[in-house]
Amino acid sequence: MLSKRLIACLDVRDGKLAKSVKFIDTRDIGDPVEKAREYYEDGLDELVFYDITASSDKRNIMLDVVEKVAEQVFIPLSVGGGVRSVADATDLRLAGAEKINVNSAAVQRPALISECAEAIGDQNIVLSMDIRRVERNKEFPSGYEIVINGGRTPMGIDALEWALKGEKLGAGELVINSIDADGTRDGYELTLTALLAQAVRIPVIASGGAGKPEHLYDVLTTGKADAALVASMVHYGDYTVSELKQYLHDQGVKMRMSW
């Protein structure tokens, strides 16, 4: 039986680790390569790097980080943040990323998904979606809207519609990131996650809001997610990766328990 996955997301700015809180303030919390290795050895199932470097001339720093991590971490490695073209995706793949996350650029130009899927394979292209809750109406039948630019720019696109379109264009996986829940540590957006997870046939990763182990349990059961993404709850040392996996395992969630 397939295990649920625990994924840690490391936000990287100028080659250093940062964790966004409500997407506004960020502060450095360490060396990404060291952290990646630590989580890998503690049983992490998959690693995501998100490049939040503002200036594009510093983007090569990220390739360097990816390369160093890929040399010592032997689990799937996913990288996103600022991927705008097949060339960006290919560079990251060559540096050692398994999966490439696309987000804002795909909203602005959906063909990016199919181009990347064609170039690096469906299963390696992850559509990451930043989503906020809105009033359910004709424009937003699901009651959720796609936003970009770290949550600052609403796009007038219904989230469910975008998820289905992304799947059709060749995305192999979805990241559902709730802007409302992100950084709150109050739990994942379960309604949103379950809504999208049940609408698509591809795996779904829940993101945003994890603060306690119970939140992971909830999103992997009620929320129907295939994987739970955590950040601050492990970065600040409140919980370890293996503690979280042990908790989920004890609650009856199928997890990989030997590594």
Partner: peptide, 13 residues
Amino acid sequence: NPELKIPHMGWNE
């Protein structure tokens, strides 16, 4: 069963 995702992606025994 719609809950079984395709591709088969992740860790399995």
